[in-house]
C-alpha cells in the first residue's frame, strides 16, 4: 500500500486524473439526490420555472427554501405512523435474523454432526431462488395463518437467511481454537459459549448484518404490498408508493415525501459505514 502511495506522489498527473475521475463519478451518484433535495424545497411554480440539470447553476436551487412542503406532506398522509411501522418491522426482523443466524452459524462452524456440509450447501443454494417464486405460496401460507395485516406476517418470513449465516460462519471459523478450549475447560455450554464468547467477538459482522437487514426491510416493497393491505401496519415504502401514485404531478410534494423516507436510512448508513467497510474487508468474501 505504502509503495503504491509513493508512486502517486511521484506522478501528480496520474493522481489528478484519479481524483478527478472519482469526483466526477461521485457527482453522478449524488446529483439525483441533490435534485430531490432542491425540488423538495421549491414552490410548485418554481419546480417548473426554475429548472436546471446542473447543481452549480443557481436555477437548480430554490430562491428561498420552502420548508412547509414537509409539513404539508406530513399532514396530507399518515407518514408518522408509517415511520413507526417501518421501524418496528425492521427492528423485529433484524432481531430475529441475528438470533437465528448466530445459532445456526455457530453450529455450522463449531459443532460436528452428520450431514453438516450437505445441509450448508443446501442452505446456500436457496440464495438462487427468485423471490417471485416464493412470494405467492408464502402469501397463501401467511393468509392461512391469519397473519395478513399483522406484525408477524411482515417479519417472521424474513427472520432467517442464508447470507447472514454464511457471513457469520466465516468469522466464527477465524476465532482461535484456544478460546473455545478455554471456554470448554471452564465448563461453559455451547449456548453460553455462543453468547458470551462468540457474540462479543463477532460484533462487527453482527452489526453489518443488522445494517443490511434494516436496509432491506426498510426498502422492501413487494411483500408489504401484499401483506400490509390496510393502514394498520402499512410501512413507509408502501405508504410512499401510494402517496406518489396518488398525489399527482406536484413535484415538490413528491420530492418532500421521498426525502422523508430517505433521511433516516441515510443517516443510519453514515453512522454505520466505517464498521461495514471493515467487516466486508475481513469477511473473506473474495475467496
Amino acid at each position: 500500500m505504502d509503495d503504491r502511495a509513493v508512486r502517486w506522489r511521484r506522478a501528480p498527473g496520474e493522481w489528478f486524473l484519479r481524483v478527478g475521475f472519482l469526483t466526477a463519478a461521485a457527482f453522478v451518484a449524488v446529483v439525483p439526490l441533490l435534485w430531490m433535495v432542491a425540488n423538495a424545497l421549491k414552490s410548485g411554480g418554481e419546480t417548473i420555472t426554475r429548472a436546471s440539470a446542473n447543481p452549480f447553476d443557481p436555477l437548480f436551487w430554490p430562491t428561498t427554501p420552502l420548508w412547509t412542503n414537509f409539513v404539508q406532506v406530513w399532514l396530507d398522509d399518515d407518514f408518522g405512523s408509517y415511520f413507526v411501522h417501518s421501524a418496528l418491522i425492521a427492528g423485529v426482523t433484524t432481531a430475529g435474523v441475528l438470533l437465528t443466524s448466530i445459532l445456526a452459524a455457530y453450529a455450522f462452524a463449531r459443532l460436528r454432526f452428520p450431514g453438516r456440509e450437505t445441509i450448508f450447501s443446501g442452505l446456500l443454494a436457496t440464495l438462487m431462488i427468485p423471490e417471485v417464486v416464493t412470494v405467492l405460496p408464502n402469501f397463501l401460507v401467511v393468509s392461512a395463518l391469519g397473519w395478513v395485516d399483522t406484525l408477524a406476517g411482515l417479519t417472521v418470513p424474513f427472520m432467517a437467511g442464508a447470507f447472514s449465516i454464511f457471513l457469520l460462519r466465516q468469522f466464527i471459523r477465524q476465532i482461535p481454537e484456544t478460546l473455545f478450549d478455554a471456554a470448554q475447560i471452564d465448563g461453559a455450554s455451547h449456548l453460553r459459549t455462543t453468547f458470551s464468547l462468540v457474540v462479543p467477538l463477532t460484533r462487527g459482522p453482527l452489526f453489518t448484518i443488522a445494517f443490511l437487514e434494516v436496509t432491506a426491510s426498510w426498502n422492501s416493497l413487494q411483500w408489504p404490498l401484499l401483506v400490509a393491505q390496510t393502514p394498520r401496519w402499512r410501512p413507509l415504502s408502501v405508504g410512499l408508493a401510494r402517496f406518489l401514485s396518488g398525489v399527482g404531478p406536484q413535484i415538490e410534494l413528491r420530492m418532500a415525501a421521498s426525502l422523508i423516507a430517505l433521511v433516516p436510512i441515510v443517516l443510519f448508513f453514515l453512522m454505520a459505514q466505517r464498521q461495514i467497510h471493515e467487516t466486508l474487508m475481513k469477511s473473506g468474501l473474495q475467496e
Partner: peptide, 16 residues
C-alpha cells in the same frame, strides 16, 4: 458517496 445510491430506498430514488 458511491454507496449512497445503494442505500437509499428504491421507492424514493425511483421517484426522482
Amino acid at each position: 458517496l458511491f454507496l449512497v445510491p445503494y442505500v437509499v430506498p428504491v421507492v424514493a430514488s425511483a421517484g426522482v
